[in-house]
Computed example of a mutant assay.
Amino acid sequence: MICSVRPPADILRAATTTAARLLRMEGEIGTLAVGAHADLLVVDGEPLDYIHVLTRTEQHPCHVIKAGTVI
């Protein structure tokens, strides 16, 4: 079992919206919105329930979408 110090929602928020705020780039990064620089990670699993789906891609396949293109 994987244990983390913070709840998964807090980890995802820190990596997205909080990071954007710290960099003074709110609305530009860390969000999925029209006009934002949004790359997207699609994983096989629910990161809010099992944060390890973001780090174990051999067990949980994922797709990266960068600038609208699947990589």
Rank of each mutant, 00 (worst) to 15 (best):
I2G: 14
I2Y: 14
C3V: 15
C3H: 13
C3N: 10
C3Y: 14
S4K: 10
S4V: 13
S4Q: 14
S4R: 12
V5T: 14
V5L: 15
V5N: 12
V5E: 14
R6V: 06
R6Y: 13
R6H: 13
P7G: 08
P7N: 09
P7I: 05
P7D: 07
P7Q: 07
P7A: 10
P7V: 04
P8M: 04
P8R: 03
P8T: 03
P8I: 01
P8N: 04
A9T: 12
A9K: 15
A9Q: 13
D10T: 12
D10H: 12
I11P: 00
I11Y: 00
I11D: 00
L12P: 01
L12W: 00
R13F: 08
R13E: 06
A14S: 12
A14V: 02
A14F: 05
A15W: 06
A15H: 10
A15F: 07
T16S: 07
T16N: 09
T16D: 03
T16W: 02
T16H: 03
T16C: 08
T16F: 03
T17Y: 10
T17D: 09
T17W: 06
T17A: 13
T18R: 11
T18H: 09
T18A: 10
T18G: 02
A20N: 02
A20C: 08
A20M: 04
R21S: 11
R21H: 11
R21I: 01
R21N: 08
L22Q: 12
L23G: 07
L23F: 15
L23M: 13
R24A: 08
R24S: 09
R24D: 07
R24T: 11
R24L: 12
R24I: 08
M25W: 02
M25P: 01
M25R: 15
M25T: 01
M25I: 04
E26G: 03
E26L: 07
E26N: 08
G27W: 01
G27R: 03
G27C: 04
E28V: 05
E28I: 02
E28P: 01
E28A: 04
I29V: 14
I29Q: 01
G30M: 01
G30I: 01
G30K: 00
G30A: 04
T31L: 02
T31Q: 04
T31S: 07
T31M: 05
L32P: 02
L32A: 08
L32D: 04
